[in-house]
Nucleic acid binder design. Structure first.
Lengths: 122, 122
DNA sequence: GTTGATTGACTACATTTGTAATCGAAGCAG
DNA sequence: CTGCTTCGATTACAAATGTAGTCAATCAAC
C-alpha cells in the first residue's frame, strides 16, 4: 500500500500521474519552479517516495526514469476519505456546502456534480 | 488567522467546536480515549493550539477554560480548499467522483448533495 | 584525454508533529 | 495542618518533513 506521502511528496506524485516516466530533472522543471524547490530538494522528495514504494525507478543509462507505483484513483480516494473523516466526520455534503459558501464552486462545477449524481443514482 | 493546526490538533479543535468552553480534563475525556492519548498528550496539543492562537484560554480558578478562537466554518472551508487544490487541482467534482466510486457516498449523502445544489442554483 | 556539467547517493540540519514524563503550585480530604 | 490529587508549565525526545549541500562517478565536448 505504501505509506502516506507528505504534502510535498504528493506534488511529485501528481506530476508523475500527469505524465510518466520522468527523470528527476524533468520533475524539477515541472514542479520545482512553482514550489520554489531546488533540484536537490526534488531529488530528496523522489528518493523518499521510492523508499516508501510509491514510485518506482527504472535505470536508464546513468539516470533513472520514475513512475508512480500507486494507483492515482486509489490514492486520491484514500486521501479524500481520510480528509472527509477528519474534518467532517465522514460526511461529504457538509464539505460541499462549505466549498459552495466560499464560492469555491463554479456553476460549471455544480452542473458537473449534478450530472455525476444522476449517473450514480441509475 | 492562526497557523495551521496539525491533524491531532484538529481533533481538539473539533471537540471545542462541538462544545465550548471545556477544560483540559474534559477534552481528554472526549478525545483522549478514542485516540489513545493520555491526559499529558492532550494538554500538549492544547498548549500548541493556544500558542498558535487557534484556541483561547480563560482562567477559571487554577485551571483554564478553552474555547476555539477560529471560526469553524472558515477553518473548514480553508482546509477543504487547500485539500481540493492539492489533490484535485481545485476541481471538486473529480473528488466527489472518487468518493462515490469508493462507495463512500451513501444514498442519503447523494440526496443531500442534490438538495444542496438545488438551493445553490436558485 | 582533460574539463565541465549532470546525476544519483549520502549527509545535514532545523522545524513540526506525535507522544509523553516531570515538577512545582494549588486545592481538597480529614 | 498534612498529605494526596489535579493543574498548567516545562522539558524530552524520536520520527517525519522541508529544504538543501556535498561528493564521486559519468558523460559530453572539446
Amino acid at each position: 500500500m505504501a505509506e502516506r506521502a507528505s504534502e510535498s511528496e504528493m506534488q511529485v506524485l501528481n506530476a508523475l500521474w500527469d505524465e510518466a516516466p520522468l527523470t528527476a530533472t524533468d520533475l524539477a522543471r515541472r514542479i520545482g519552479k512553482a514550489n520554489g524547490w531546488t533540484l536537490a530538494t526534488v531529488k530528496t522528495l523522489i528518493a523518499r517516495l521510492v523508499q516508501k514504494g510509491a514510485v518506482t525507478a527504472e535505470a536508464d543509462g546513468r539516470r533513472y526514469l520514475y513512475r508512480p507505483a500507486v494507483d492515482r484513483a486509489e490514492a486520491m480516494g484514500e486521501e479524500s476519505q481520510r480528509f472527509v473523516d477528519r474534518l467532517f466526520g465522514g460526511r461529504v455534503s457538509p464539505m460541499i456546502a462549505h466549498l459552495a459558501e466560499r464560492e469555491a464552486l463554479t456553476d460549471a462545477d455544480i452542473e458537473e456534480i449534478e450530472a455525476l449524481l444522476r449517473r450514480l443514482k441509475s
